[in-house]
Write a protein that binds this DNA or RNA. Structure first.
Lengths: 217, 217
DNA sequence: CCTACCGATCGGTAGG
DNA sequence: CCTACCGATCGGTAGG
């Protein structure tokens, strides 16, 4: 298994990052049977919720019989867990790349905000929403596993926010700021509709940064 | 039916507001059979989710048989809807009182932030969490009804934020600020644990206000 | 508010 | 990956 860290000093390139993760078997190939199922599952879980989505719904979405699902996954819950695990892995890699590509600490934070907004409102948005709204449906054992991955993801944010605090650019507590940002950015999935025109992702990012009231560099 | 607006020019007093709403039949008496069921339902819906909570769970929580539930509510979904409707009614009244009791526009915003944090992390917290996390489980018809009530609630926030914008104290867009605040404040239910010591509700409120970067009055 | 029960649907399995 | 099926559980009802 190659290192998750290796390709990340290159410019942000989601496709390259994805290919690298697939090669390391950290994320399923979206065109494999497993990959397609996980993508459909993310969509269904987000739209109907995990509990309302039946194994028959999942099977129908990829055109197989419900009994055949259990050839790929031991239980329905394993599917939920896989959606979450692969989503965090991909997003951690993307966020790290975005952060490393940025220069100043201020730019690093902006890159994180923008990347998280992109994750939530872009292609992986369904899966990100599942992570937020279906947490309770995960067994405690699975929660613990996913939390380990989430800690790595959150450490990225804390690195950027702590650096800004040390610079004196941030007055509020970095931990609190991150928790508030996590809620605020996740919540955009319920109201932000870029395709309807109006605010662009860049504009939304600027609004978030402006709201944080960082002192000028 | 007396007006929802009448008692709200007096100082904030949750108990008085609750009694007034009960008298007007807008909220169930917490000691009535219906009121007790709704409170238990809110707790179960938050802990297990609406779908995982069975009518047998609900009945057991108030010490009756599952068939008897349908004497009080026509369907399980009606229980979810009632939890949401009564929660918004109560919180709208409480928020309005908090806002009216405040002097400056800046103080009004702070009062709203504090009151919403109290709602989310206090006695009605379970029900507030249900409103956030179980929205999808509500039928479209019920969603429309609840949205009508939520619009009134949100109008309170927009009044306060628009006033600050006109004062020149707020630089960001009021609508965006409210959406971000809605997410950030709701999300506290997942991590903020005042009983563990550390940050008080007042302290948390201050952090939120500081984060908004309002220019000094 | 209880007893007794229903039709439907659920996640999952066996054997190919 | 399919066919055929299972035991369990679900929301809700009838009649008192």
């Amino acid at each position: 298994m190659r290192s998750l860290l290796k390709p990340l000093d290159m410019p942000v390139n989601q496709e390259k990052i994805l290919q690298s993760l697939i090669a390391d078997d950290l994320v399923s190939d979206p065109e494999s049977a497993r990959g397609r199922l996980l993508r459909e599952a993310a969509g269904l879980f987000r739209d109907k919720g995990y509990e309302r989505t039946t194994v028959r719904d999942l099977a129908a979405a990829v055109g197989i019989q419900s009994g055949s699902l259990f050839h790929h996954f031991r239980t329905k819950e394993d599917i939920l867990k896989a959606v979450m695990v692969e989503t965090i892995r991909l997003n951690t890699a993307v966020m790290r790349a975005a952060m490393n590509a940025a220069g100043s600490n201020r730019e690093k934070l902006k890159a994180l905000v923008r990347a998280e907004l992109e994750s939530i409102n872009g292609q992986t948005g369904e899966a990100m929403a599942v992570l937020v709204f279906e947490w309770r449906s995960l067994s405690e054992a699975s929660q613990a596993d996913v939390l380990t991955l989430r800690d790595i993801y959150e450490a990225l944010w804390m690195t950027a926010l702590n650096a800004l605090k040390e610079d004196g650019a941030l007055t509020a507590d970095p931990f609190i700021v991150r928790r508030m940002l996590a809620g605020a950015l996740s919540w955009t999935v319920t109201w932000y509709r870029p395709e309807r025109g109006g605010l662009t992702l860049e504009g939304l990012t600027d609004q978030v940064i402006a709201m944080l009231g960082l002192t000028q560099p």
